[in-house]
């Protein structure tokens, strides 16, 4: 396409008012013509101003977007710890571990092999009324946690939010078992529960229903080790997929 022909159509291109063939040939010319490129950039700004009407964002749209960033099989992105102040402002800005694409490939391969093998067992022991039973379970749990911490190859995962660095921590052992080491999660109202998720093969997998005030949580994950653990607040009984922003998360380091 000659320069004059392309130049004449730049305004229509900025409005997406050309057909696909014209778009291709114009863009081909623009790529090699600084004058047309500058003109097109300027006209795109005008088009942007023209279309710059702001609608209230639909509820749940961000949740859909944030959940779909894992859809391509990548596992590199830790789940975001996000909180909205009445939907108006992101109030969390936690920095987190960054994995580069090369690592994505490795994790994707591992995750793809084993993603279908995930088995989730959740034990949340809450509202124990028998003090002796409580103590017994506590001792057993502490013993199991201590044993896990002494197991070669174990991994400790520290869970944090933007405002608190030590909301919870877990220990994972190589055979897939995991235990809550400590928790400073605030007690939830009746009707809600904390739910633990593991990001495996880029997707959040439910690992455990933790109850309203987690103190003892054990679980087993078969297959790939999660790259990230995250905690959400869900309705009692849990949810098959996260329905709210994570209140804490932690990378599972190798």
């Amino acid at each position: 396409m000659k320069h004059d022909e392309a130049y004449e159509l730049l305004a229509a291109l900025a409005l997406d008012a050309v057909d696909d063939h014209e778009r291709l040939v114009i863009e081909e010319h623009v790529a090699t013509c600084p004058k047309c490129r500058s003109e097109l950039d300027s006209l795109l700004e005008v088009a942007g101003a023209l279309g710059n009407s702001v609608d209230p964002l639909p509820e749940g749209l961000w949740t859909s977007i944030s959940s779909r960033i894992y859809d391509n099989g990548d596992v590199a992105h830790p789940m975001p710890v996000l909180a909205y102040d009445n939907g108006a402002r992101v109030v969390s800005s936690q920095r987190r571990h960054v994995r580069r694409p090369a690592q994505r490939t490795v994790f994707s391969s591992l995750g793809a092999v084993a993603a279908a093998l995930i088995v989730v067992l959740a034990v949340s022991l809450a509202n124990q009324t028998n003090r002796a039973s409580n103590l017994q379970h506590q001792l057993v749990n502490e013993s199991a946690t201590s044993a896990a911490l002494a197991t070669p190859g174990h991994t400790v995962v520290d869970m944090a939010s933007s405002t608190q660095a030590d909301l919870a921590s877990f220990v994972l052992v190589p055979d897939g078992r995991g235990y809550l080491i400590s928790s400073h999660l605030p007690t939830l109202p009746v009707g809600d529960t904390y739910q633990l998720w593991g990001v495996i093969n880029g997707k959040p997998i439910s690992i455990a229903i933790m109850g309203t005030s987690p103190r003892k949580v054990t679980f087993t994950v078969s297959g790939s080790k999660p790259t990230l653990l995250g905690i959400t607040v869900e309705p009692t009984g849990g949810s098959p997929i996260p329905t709210s922003a994570m209140v804490a998360s932690g990378a599972v380091e190798d």
């Binding site: 710059n52 209230p56 830790p78 710890v81 996000l82 992101v90 800005s93």
Partner: peptide, 20 residues
Amino acid sequence: YDEVALAEAYRRHGGAVFGL
């Protein structure tokens, strides 16, 4: 790969993108 940055971009421009 900072999702918080994506969320902030969404907060700033999502309404305009959706509105158009």
